[in-house]
């Protein structure tokens, strides 16, 4: 296996005197997909949010470029490389196009480059025909694809997906799976949580199980 992109070490999270995560170590590799399984409430979402910098751990270290850093000091600099997608993605008010272009506003692209990137991304995801539609009026499966595209367009190194296939019909699941495989083939490191381990065949390279706050 190649060198890890990021290594999170000793992640601990305590909330109301309950240890949600206990000394969890996880390495993220480029072009590899990790499945995190575990029962509801096992801490999967918390772990992903800590990796994404959306939740503060009680203790954690991050290793990258051969150096170890505290989570607090390093997370701001690496957060741009990591995107977290909710189980039910939140699409902002506006069209599919405006949702997909949201993150690009904070890059150095000019208007023309931004428009071209959005067009390319919508074609990549097969969403060109719904580009002008209000995002919130779309079906759950299409909304999930919009969320994937909104993340993909920013070319993050790490994509964290919280139960991405939950509540999806078979067709939507296949379409979503196809997009994820393409993201993986582009070198993206993907972490997926699920309590159903059979749903994402052909995508998973590494499987961890989270129980009692520990990773097995």
């Amino acid at each position: 296996m190649s060198e890890p992109l990021l290594v999170f070490r000793g992640i601990e999270k305590t909330f109301a005197e309950t240890n949600i995560l206990r000394n969890v170590d996880i390495s993220l590799y480029p072009g590899k997909c990790i499945l995190l399984s575990g029962n509801n409430g096992s801490g999967k979402t918390t772990l992903l949010k800590i990796i994404a910098g959306l939740e503060t751990p009680s203790r954690a270290e991050i290793e990258f470029s051969g150096k170890s850093h505290s989570w607090k000091s390093a997370i701001r600099s690496i957060r741009r490389e990591i995107i977290y997608l909710h189980q039910q993605p939140y699409l902002l008010s506006g069209t599919v196009e405006s949702n997909v272009s949201y993150g690009l506003r904070f890059t150095h692209l000019n208007r023309k480059q931004l428009r071209e990137s959005v067009k390319e991304a919508l074609e990549w995801a097969g969403l060109a025909d719904v580009a002008k539609q209000q995002a919130k009026t779309l079906s759950g499966g299409v909304q999930q694809r919009v969320a994937f595209t909104r993340a993909w367009i920013l070319k993050p190194k790490v994509l964290l997906l919280d139960e991405p296939m939950a509540n999806m019909d078979i067709e939507s699941r296949e379409q979503a799976c196809d997009l994820l495989k393409r993201m993986k083939s582009e070198g993206m490191s993907i972490v997926i949580t699920s309590h159903d381990t059979n749903i994402i065949d052909g995508l998973i390279d590494i499987h961890f199980s989270l129980s009692d706050g520990k990773l097995d």
């Binding site: 959306l54 957060r79 741009r80 990591i82 909710h86 939140y90 902002l92 949201y102 506003r105 904070f106």
Partner: peptide, 23 residues
Amino acid sequence: RVRETAITLGAPWWFTILTVLYE
């Protein structure tokens, strides 16, 4: 999720606030 979505998509703090208020 609005705030978390804005943050994870790279919005600076002030744009995150505007996004939440707009929603």
